[in-house]
Amino acid sequence: MNIQKSYAQTPSDGRERQIQRGKLYLVGTPIGNLDDMTFRAVQVLKDADWIAAEDTRQTRKLLNHFQIAGRLVSYHEHNKQARGQELLDKLRQGETIALVSDAGLPAISDPGEDLVRQAVEEQIAVIPIPGANAALSALIVSGLPTEEFRFAGFLPRDKKKLSEKLHRLNRSAGTVIVYESPHRLEKILEQMLEAWGDCRIGMARELTKIHEEIARGTLSECLEWVKEHPPRGEYCLVVHLAGEAAENRSEESWWNGLSIEEHVAYYEKQGGDRKQAMKKAAVDRGMSRRDIYNELIEK
């Protein structure tokens, strides 16, 4: 059991100290717009003995903008084991460290998670300095339910692991948030559509920046949009899942008595072309369009 009282010691006037010795501060930084930097974050960075950064070049630009002359040290995925021990030594000796990521809150999908865990294990106080966060910013503007959500970070690159991850996420209903790069976006949307059906999605890119853009619709609509408008910038995807329980309502489905051929023919009669009809039938049945196509070819 570890009980942390972050501000046990205060000055005589009762105000919290900005910095206390031997503590690890997790400092939120802007995700694009520098005006989102808080006064408290600036003060903590000024007062810290060391600033540990994922990319020192990126962080140096931020420090220069706010005229912060802190001692900067790199801490990233490739040096986290050795550098992590060095930082822990400094904390043990009573020095203060402010940990930052390239943008947003540290320790989310970055090596800061390891340093936090090690500090907690050694009963070193870890203090959050809140700031901007891309995942939560995308969630609240998505227009999707926010009462229950999961953050999945970056999805696996391996096709098999990706498929397994998508199916695990779909075991229960709720909203899922993931990060994705522009060059993988189309592929990921295709995989999501195949695994999850035509869910509602919000795609946010360049949040707080001059080219901020939020696309809202179904997975199929956003997939078509991406094909016509090549993606640029990092994306945050917010998807509302019905869950597997909703996918397995076959007895209650209007198309339950139809063959796949009849199912596709129904949508064709509604005015859609065969490709679109196959896509809609695939979504209804929780199948991929390729599987629908193969079934029809075999007939």
Results as ranks from 00 to 15, higher is better:
Ser220Met: 06
Leu185Asp: 04
Glu252Phe: 01
Ser163Arg: 06
Val178Gln: 05
Met203Cys: 04
Pro156Leu: 07
Arg200Asp: 10
Leu139His: 04
Arg17Tyr: 13
Trp255Gly: 00
Trp255Met: 10
Gly22Ser: 03
Leu105Thr: 13
Glu186Val: 15
Ala107Ile: 03
Glu234Asn: 11
Arg289Ser: 13
Asp102Tyr: 13
Gln9Pro: 03
Gln18Thr: 06
Ala134Tyr: 04
Tyr266Leu: 13
Ser163Pro: 00
Trp254Gly: 00
Ile177Asn: 00
His211Met: 14
Ile51Ser: 01
Phe149Ala: 00
Glu180Gln: 05
Leu185Ser: 02
Gly257Asp: 15
Asn79Thr: 01
Lys46Val: 06
Ala98Phe: 01
Ala282Tyr: 10
Arg249Gly: 04
Trp255Arg: 10
Ile68Trp: 00
Ala135Asp: 06
Arg21Phe: 07
Lys23Asn: 09
Glu180Met: 07
Val120Met: 12
Ile51Lys: 04
Arg117Glu: 13
Ser142Leu: 02
Ala8Val: 07
Pro231His: 00
Glu16His: 07
Ser163Phe: 10
Asp89Val: 08
Ile124Gly: 04
Lys165Gln: 13
Pro230Asn: 02
Leu207Ala: 02
Gly197Ser: 09
Ala98Pro: 02
Leu88Pro: 10
Ser220Cys: 11
Glu268Lys: 09
Ala53Ser: 09
Arg274Val: 14
Ile51Leu: 12
Gln85Thr: 11
Val238Ser: 02
Leu87Ala: 07
Val178Met: 05
Met278Glu: 08
Cys236Ser: 08
Ile51His: 08
Val283His: 05
Glu164Met: 14
Gly14Ala: 05
Leu162Val: 00
Val73Ala: 03
Ile127Gln: 08
Gly153Tyr: 10
Asn133Gly: 12
Ser163Trp: 08
Asp47Asn: 04
Glu148Lys: 11
Leu34Ile: 13
